[in-house]
Write a protein that binds this DNA or RNA. Structure first.
Lengths: 338, 338
DNA sequence: ATTATAATAGCAAACGTTTGCAAAAGGTGG
DNA sequence: CCACCTTTTGCAAACGTTTGCTATTATAAT
C-alpha cells in the first residue's frame, strides 16, 4: 500500500480509514485520545490529502474554467485577477484556456474542460452560436459570459452596455464640435461589435445627423484590420470627409493610429481619434489616447460573486443573471475641440 | 449506476468495462464487429470520459500550475500565454494562482496545488527561501522558476541575465554622457534585485566611476516605493547630484516619473530615466519610455519546452537546467544625450 | 477427434477518498 | 446480571477509470 495515504496511516494506527478520514475533515465525534493519536500520526507523516481522489468521490473539483481569447491583454488579465481574488477564499482555483481568438480552439478547450469536470465556466466567447457550451448548461454547470453574449436563452452574462459605449463616444465627439464621424467596428456577428455600432448610429440619429455608410468600416479586432480600415477611410476622404473616428477595439485603435501616422497626418489636428480599451500608461505625464474604457475590475468582481452564488446553490437551477456595467470615457489628447 | 459512465455503457452492451475502456483509448485488439458496436454505443450516448477518475488511476492530472505575483501585468500575461501555447497540444492545461506579491499567499497556494496533484509547477517566487516548493521537488514534480531564483541547489530556472540588464542600462546612460547615475532597486533579498544592482555597480566600476551609495535607493517593486525613492533622491540632489536614474521595475518607474513631474521637473531635460519592463503602447507615435525589456515570449516558450521535456521523462531524475536569456534595451525619449 | 495455439473478452484489483449503516464496546439503571 | 442506551469504531460500497492476468472460445494443426 502506498505511503502517505489515508489507508496507510490508518493501518499503521490499527484504525480504519473511515476514522482517519473523519479526523482529517473535522467530522470526528469519537474518543479524544484516538483523535490525538490520529492527529499525531498525520503530523508525523505530514499527511496531505489527495484532492483528485476527493474530487472523484465528491464529484466536485473546486475548479473554475476561464476561457479567453487573449490572456496577455490587460483587459482580460485584470478580469482574471479579480475573479481569482474573489473565489480563492472559498477554495476554488482557476484553470485557464487561451483561445487565440479561434472558434475552433474554443470548442476544443470547452470539450476538454467538460471532461475535466470543472465546477463552473467563465467564457469570453467568440463563437456566437454558443453550441459548445450546451453540455455545460445541460448538466447544470454554471456558465457566466463576459464580453460577447451568444444568442441563447437562460444564460448569465456580465458585460458593459456596449450600445451605451458607442453613444458615449459619439456624444463626446459631437460635444467637441465634430459632425462627420467615422467608425471602425469589430465583427457585427457578435454582440460587442453589433451593439457598439448600434450606439454609434443611435447617437447620430438622436442628433439629427444622417448616418453615412461609407464612414462605417469593419475589422476583426486585430491591429492589421484597424490599419486597413483606416486606410480605406482616408483614401475615400474627399468623397466621404470626416474629422473624427471612433475605433472599437484596443488593437484596431493602434492600427488606425499607425495608418494615420503613415500618411503623415496628425492626431488630433487632422483627425481626432477615440479608442477602446486603451490602457494608457500610468505615469499620466505624456500624451494619452482618448478612449472608452470598461471597468474590468468590477466585471471580474461581479463574475466572481455570481459564480460563488451559483456554486453554493448546489441543487436549484441557476437563475439567469445579466449585469450591464457602465462603460466610461477616459479623456486624453487625441480629440480636438473644433 | 450512473448514466454516461463506461460501466453503464458496458452493461448496456453486455460487455465489460475493460473492453469499452480499451476501445475508448484505442487499445482494443479484439473483434472488429464488437469494436463497431462499442463505438456506436459511445456515439449514441455521446460518451465523455471522466478525467478526474482517469487522473486518479493514472496518477497524473495533465495540469501545470503557474504561480505568479500579478497576472494582470503584461509581462506575466505574455509568459502565461506562451507557456499555454507550448503545452496545450500535449493535453496539458494551466491552473493559475496569483499571489498578489505576498509570500504567505504563495505558500498557501503551493500547498493547495500540491494537494491537487499538479504534474508540474512554474513559479515566479517572491519567497527566496524556497521552502514551500520542497514538497514538489522531493516528490519529483518538475519545478521551473522564472523571474526570481531561490537559493537552492538542483533547481531549474529560466530568466534573463539580470546583472547584464543592469550593465546594459548603465552602459547606455554612460554612452549618452551621463556620469552621475542613480538607481532604484527592488528588494535585494531576491535575485532579480540583487543582480540588477550588481550589474549597475560593475558597469560603473568598469568605467572607473566610483559608486555613490546615496544614489542607490531601495523599493519593493511597487509604484509608491518608486515614488518615495525618487523623492529621496531629488531631496538630496545638491549633496548627491545625478543626471540620470535607472529604475528596476515597471511600477517603480511610473512612480519615479510621477515624482519627477510632481516637482515640475522635466524628463529628459532635467533628469533622464531608464525604466524596466515598460510596455510602451504599440502605436509607436508618441513619447516612449526608454526601458530595459525582457523577452517574455521567449521566456514563456522556453518554459513550456522545458516542462514538456521533463514531463516526458517519466522516470529519471530531472536534470537541472538554467537558461539566462538576454535582456535588451528599448530606446525611447526619456534619456537625454549630454 | 484431439491437442496446441491464437483470438477475444472479462475478472478483479487498484487509484485514494467519503459516508451510510451496522457492529462492537462501554456504561447505566433496574 | 441482564437489558438497554451511548459512544466509538469499522465495514463496505461508491466515485469512474485502467490494466495485468486469466478464462473462454474459436481456429488450426496433427
Amino acid at each position: 500500500m502506498n505511503k502517505g495515504t489515508l489507508k496507510y496511516i490508518a493501518k499503521e494506527l490499527g484504525l480504519s480509514a473511515s476514522t482517519v478520514s473523519r479526523v482529517v475533515n473535522g467530522k470526528y465525534e469519537g474518543n479524544e485520545k484516538t483523535k490525538q493519536r490520529v492527529l499525531d500520526a498525520l503530523e508525523k507523516h505530514s499527511y496531505i490529502p489527495n484532492e483528485v481522489a476527493r474530487s472523484l468521490q465528491k464529484s466536485s473539483t473546486e475548479t473554475i474554467a476561464v476561457v479567453l481569447p487573449d490572456i496577455s491583454e490587460t483587459f482580460f488579465g485584470t478580469i482574471v485577477k479579480e475573479i481569482e481574488n474573489e473565489v480563492s477564499d472559498s477554495g476554488y482555483m482557476l484553470i485557464l484556456a487561451d483561445t487565440h481568438e479561434k472558434a475552433e480552439k474554443e470548442r476544443k478547450y470547452l470539450d476538454i474542460l467538460y471532461k475535466r469536470r470543472v465546477d463552473a465556466l467563465v467564457l469570453a466567447t467568440i463563437d456566437s452560436s454558443g453550441d459548445a457550451v450546451s453540455k455545460f448548461i445541460a448538466n447544470d454547470i454554471p456558465v457566466v459570459f463576459i464580453d460577447n453574449i451568444p444568442k441563447l436563452d437562460g444564460i448569465s452574462a456580465i458585460t458593459i452596455d456596449n450600445k451605451k459605449a458607442g453613444q458615449i463616444a459619439v456624444d463626446y465627439l459631437l460635444s467637441c464640435g465634430h459632425r462627420q464621424i467615422a467608425t471602425i467596428i469589430g465583427s457585427t456577428s457578435e454582440t460587442t461589435g453589433a451593439d457598439r455600432l448600434a450606439g454609434y448610429c443611435s447617437a447620430l440619429s438622436d442628433n439629427n445627423i444622417e448616418k453615412n455608410d461609407s464612414l462605417i468600416k469593419f475589422g476583426d479586432y486585430k491591429l492589421d484590420s484597424g490599419y486597413k480600415a483606416m486606410c480605406e477611410l482616408l483614401d475615400n476622404r474627399n468623397k466621404a470627409p470626416f474629422t473624427a473616428v471612433f475605433v472599437t477595439s484596443e488593437q484596431m485603435t493602434y492600427g488606425a493610429l499607425r495608418a494615420i501616422r503613415d500618411r503623415s497626418l496628425n492626431v488630433p489636428d487632422d483627425i481626432s481619434v477615440i479608442g477602446f480599451d486603451i490602457h494608457n500608461l500610468k505615469d499620466d505625464r505624456r500624451q494619452m489616447i482618448t478612449t472608452i474604457r470598461q471597468p474590468e475590475d468590477v466585471i471580474g468582481k461581479n463574475v466572481g460573486e455570481l459564480l460563488l452564488k451559483y456554486l453554493s446553490e448546489n441543487d436549484t437551477a441557476k437563475e439567469e443573471t445579466r449585469i450591464f456595467l457602465e462603460p466610461f470615457l477616459q479623456k486624453g489628447d487625441t480629440v480636438k475641440k473644433l
